[in-house]
Design a protein around this nucleic acid. Structure first.
Ligand SMILES: [Mn+2]
Ligand SMILES: [Mn+2]
Ligand SMILES: [Zn+2]
Ligand SMILES: [Zn+2]
Lengths: 138, 138
DNA sequence: ATTTCATTTGCAACTTTGTTGCATTTATAA
DNA sequence: TTATAAATGCAACAAAGTTGCAAATGAAAT
C-alpha cells in the first residue's frame, strides 16, 4: 500500500526513507509554507539537522518543493504543483505573507503579471510576494 | 563643506561618523545592491562586523536603504529614493537579479503592477523580483 | 529470505552569520 | 573646552549552514 507521500517520492526517483516521508508529509498536510526551523520542531527532533537540510535540498532539486523569497533572511519552502520538472520550477503564482499570523501561502490561482523591462534585460523568472493581512486574520 | 553623504546623514538625524560615511558612500557610488559581505570586503576590514550590522540596521530604520527579497538566504541592501520616510518605505519598483554577473539592481522606472487577490486578503506591500540576464551581460 | 551495493543517515567538527552586554571612544552641542 | 548622549570595538555567545566519513538502511538481485 503506497501512501500519497510514497507516490511522490517514487515518481521523483527518491528512495523512500523515514525522514523523507515525515518531512514530505508535513508539506502535504500543511497549507502554508514551512521554514527549516518549523520542520525541525514539527518532526520532534527526530532527525539530525543535517538530514533535514539534505532532504530539503533534494526535494528542491527534484522540483517537489520551491522556495519563497522574503525580505528578511528567512527561507520558506512550499509544495510545488505537480507539473514542476526536475530542476526547472515554473510556479508562476503570487505568494502571500500575513503580517498577523506570519504564515506564508501560495496563491495558486493568482498569476504573476508580466512587466515591461528596460531594453536589454532578459527575464527568466518572475517572483511576486504580497504581504498584508490574510483571509483568516482580518 | 558637507559631502552628499553628510547631507543624507544629517537629513536623517544620524551623527556623522567614519563608518556611516564610508558605508553610505558605497551605496551612493554603487549602482547595484550590496550584501553584508560586500560591505565588509569593500571597506577593507576597517570596521568591526558588529558596527556594519548596526549601521545597516539604522540606515534601514531611517529609510535610507531597503532590503531586496531573494529566494536564497542572502540579504541585499540598496539605496532608497529620497522620498522614503522613517520606518515607512515605499519603493514600489521591480528588482532585477542577474544570473550571470549576480548583481542585484533597482529598476526604479518599472512599477510593480497591481494584482487581484482572493477575497479576504488585505494587501499592504507588494514586492516583485525578476531574475535573468542583465543589460550588460547579454 | 538473504545477500549485495549504492544511497542515506547521524555524528563531529567546522565555517559563516548574526546578536548582546559592556567598557571605551567619539560626535555634537552647550 | 567641557559635558553628555550616542556610537564603536571587543568578547562571548547563539544560530544557521556545510563537509567528510563511518555506520545504517533501502532497493534490487539472487
Ligand atoms: Mn508557491
Ligand atoms: Mn530597490
Ligand atoms: Zn494571517
Ligand atoms: Zn549581469
Amino acid at each position: 500500500m503506497s501512501t500519497p507521500v510514497d507516490i511522490i517520492l517514487k515518481r521523483n526517483q527518491l528512495s523512500i526513507t523515514d525522514s523523507r516521508k515525515k518531512i514530505l508529509e508535513l508539506f502535504v498536510n500543511n497549507s502554508g509554507a514551512l521554514e527549516h526551523a518549523d520542520i525541525e520542531k514539527k518532526t520532534g527532533e527526530k532527525f539530525d539537522r543535517v538530514t533535514v537540510y539534505r532532504t530539503l535540498q533534494s526535494f528542491l532539486e527534484k522540483g517537489i518543493i520551491h522556495t519563497i523569497p522574503t525580505s528578511d533572511n528567512s527561507v520558506r519552502y512550499a509544495l510545488c504543483k505537480d507539473d514542476c520538472k526536475e530542476g526547472h520550477h515554473h510556479d508562476n503564482h503570487v505568494h502571500f505573507l500575513c503580517n498577523e499570523c506570519h504564515t506564508t501561502m501560495c496563491l495558486e490561482d493568482v498569476t504573476i503579471p508580466e512587466v515591461k523591462l528596460p531594453v536589454g534585460f532578459q527575464p527568466a523568472e518572475y517572483q511576486m510576494v504580497v504581504s498584508g493581512t490574510c483571509k483568516e486574520c482580518r
